[in-house]
Write a protein that binds this DNA or RNA. Sequence first.
DNA 1: GCGGGCTCTCAGCCGGCTCTCAGGTTCGGG
DNA 2: CCCGAACCTGAGAGCCGGCTGAGAGCCCGC
Lengths: 227, 227
Amino acid sequence: MHAPRLLLVDDEENLRSMLEAALAHSGFDVHPAASGREALEAVRQVRPDLVVLDVMLPDLDGFDVVKRLRSGGDRTPVLFLTARDATEDRVRGLTLGGDDYLVKPFSLEELVARITAVLRRAGVDTRGSRLTCADLEMDDDAHRVTRGGEDIALSPTEYNLLRFLLQNKGRVVSKAQILDHVWNYDFGGDGGVVETYIGYLRRKLEAAGPRLIHTLRGVGYTLREPT
Amino acid sequence: MHAPRLLLVDDEENLRSMLEAALAHSGFDVHPAASGREALEAVRQVRPDLVVLDVMLPDLDGFDVVKRLRSGGDRTPVLFLTARDATEDRVRGLTLGGDDYLVKPFSLEELVARITAVLRRAGVDTRGSRLTCADLEMDDDAHRVTRGGEDIALSPTEYNLLRFLLQNKGRVVSKAQILDHVWNYDFGGDGGVVETYIGYLRRKLEAAGPRLIHTLRGVGYTLREPT
DNA sequence: GCGGGCTCTCAGCCGGCTCTCAGGTTCGGG
DNA sequence: CCCGAACCTGAGAGCCGGCTGAGAGCCCGC
């Protein structure tokens, strides 16, 4: 089993290199491209498992790229990145072919979650979607969290934060790391909001049961099985 | 296996030579640079495993340096050094690619710990993150200390002091060395505080179990396996 | 337009952490 | 044995980080 190959297409220099580093770090084999033509060329050469494709591009836009791919018989799944304002209607309908889209700005957690979801649907094996810690369980496919069999309702941010903690079970994560992964990449605030959400999670998860989220003063937080 | 190569970029003459000596002594192959342009040049020539990069530089600042590196396809991980006040928001987004940052003033221990953490994440082999002495164990990833399987809660300073002692197990370290490595480099006080913290550690570590930290009067302290 | 959930900010509180200091104790040399 | 130096320890002041509750703004569904 090799790491899934991604083709990352975005003309925005900064964002592209940031995402490139981040996705590589998340275990993907990332190949960058800066324009539509480059992308078409790269698809043939790289044969990626998935294309992460910005809609707004200097030459061919994202839709054109896909149109040409499909008319050439290529079925590689595509994850679109779009700006909030426009085009949302145009992107709809594309999800029919197993593709998906994400509006900017997003968080890295969101992006990775969508990518693995699309890959899974396309039959590319990724590690399972089940995360646990003691009697706490998260089924990412069903977007469902339980503790001791009981359902727990979480807001989107709470859910993403918990997933990030679960993925790093047994390791310490700093507030900066949490902000970088769980919050949108253009979020401007400080770490105060993380403390608030840790509080929310604790209230919901540890209402009945031992402590799972531990504070390491001056260092960060960690999720750990109680002994 | 060769010693990991570091590129150390800081325009502050004093600090740079101090860090250069200290890091060399910690087993790294250190190459200094004093400006952004120098750094870019040096990255190409030296091909370091990691760049330690001050954000505040006379010509290109640290962010510019990284931007240029990345746009040139270079993925060398970076550890940023920043002043406390500003820039903390600008540093955000950096923990994404496995990079990290450290606010001045820091301690040598902190610096070395971050460097090895980043290198480990980047796949460069360093000795593992597990330090032991008799039944005392420290797992640096989880930031966790146990003795005989029992958890021991340590404050940040206690933790850093213990790690320093563990890394020098079997050797004697003077109070001056401890101050230089464990306390921030701008710390003004005398060695009295070291005695206090040694006391704290002894109380927590040796509550149940034989003595591990030994005093060598007029020389320093040493951590040793009981015989 | 109205109501409810979600997100984020902020200020006050609390407790732990860091460091200082003084008095007591141990050690080694003379 | 005596004395000074080095070290240990307890008490406490001040500081700082994290926790929490309250509330404003926003979006969305009704």
